[in-house]
């Protein structure tokens, strides 16, 4: 029996037959549907803040209020070291990529199940659902970033910091990209698993909570013992947060081997996530 996924039909022809083993990634299909990624992202954003009193300001309030809470408990009461910086700006800089990641974990991981009527009724590359969810978070990130600029100006004016424009700031998009790669990779794994195992729904909040504390969000990487630094770097979000602090606040966390470890982990998670997602994709409509 000729049961292989690979077939070379003439242009415009689709052959549907059972596939075996690892399926090719078929990213071309994703490209054909690129407009839909845009529409779904736009819809996510549009719908998210409808019928909310404060609307889009939640994008800013969410990390901002967390910062306030952390500043009181970790900064003032527990006196956690913030590498000589005012604790609020130290925490907020980390909360920006962290919120992006946590939202992606929440929304993108649930994206397939929450769109199950689309999945069972229409064909489109399923990859597009988690992708659009992650992308919607970028817009929130940009809004929250404006507040950070405000904070930098404020702390410079009060003399608490002496931040200057420098070339390191130009690397920021790369750290943002690293956060997105990590978020998408984790979301691909979780969203595909969620289709089959509803347990994922209960694991997500727990995972997000634990992950936040193994990332240097409320504390500084310098608190981690030296012998554990390389193990610690296996968490890609550690690389992201350290990168953000280094690029924006000039902390002593300049890119080094640890960042390379973080980046490699992020790529491993993304690529394995892509292949796992693709191999499960054909059964989504039947199992969801």
């Amino acid at each position: 029996m000729a049961k292989t996924a690979i077939s070379k039909p003439e242009p415009g022809t689709v052959v549907l037959r059972p596939s075996r083993g690892w399926t090719a990634l078929n990213l071309r299909d994703l490209w054909l549907y690129r407009e839909l990624v845009f529409f779904m992202t736009w819809r996510d954003l549009k719908v998210r803040y409808k019928q909310t009193l404060l609307g889009v300001s939640w994008a800013v309030l969410n990390p901002f209020l967390q910062m306030v809470v952390f500043s009181i408990f970790f900064g003032e009461l527990a006196k956690v070291s913030s590498d000589g910086l005012p604790y609020p700006i130290f925490a907020y800089t980390a909360l920006l990529p962290w919120t992006l990641f946590a939202n992606a974990l929440n929304n993108a991981s649930r994206s397939l199940v929450s769109h199950q009527n689309m999945v069972t009724k229409i064909y489109f590359p399923r990859l597009l659902l988690p992708l659009a969810s992650v992308m919607a978070g970028v817009v929130d990130f940009l809004l929250a970033f404006l507040v950070l600029i405000g904070m930098m100006i404020y702390y410079n004016a009060t003399g608490a910091t002496h931040l200057t424009l420098n070339w390191a700031m130009l690397t920021l998009p790369l750290f943002l990209l690293l956060a997105l790669v990590t978020a998408l990779g984790v979301a691909l794994w979780l969203s595909a698993l969620y289709v089959k195992y509803r347990d994922v729904n209960y694991i997500i909040p727990f995972l997000a909570e634990v992950w936040k504390f193994v990332s240097p969000v409320v504390y500084s990487t310098s608190m981690v013992p030296a012998k554990w630094q390389f193990v610690y770097a296996l968490n890609p979000m550690a690389g992201v947060v350290n990168g953000f602090r280094w690029a924006l606040l000039g902390t002593q966390t300049a890119p080094d081997l640890r960042l390379a470890i973080s980046a490699a982990m992020a790529v491993i998670v993304l690529v394995s996530g892509l292949f796992y997602f693709r191999s499960m994709e054909k059964t989504f409509a039947d199992t969801i």
Binding site: G12, V15, L16, P18, M118, T120, K121, I122, Y123, T283
Partner: peptide, 26 residues
């Protein structure tokens, strides 16, 4: 309409398939 994969056999389709399996999806 490419939503689910066959277990055996094959389907060859020439051209774009539009399905009205349930209108208003999405």
């Amino acid at each position: 309409s490419h939503i689910t994969e066959p277990t055996e056999g094959s389907v060859t389709i020439r051209g774009r398939v539009g399905s009205l399996l349930e209108v208003g999806t999405g």
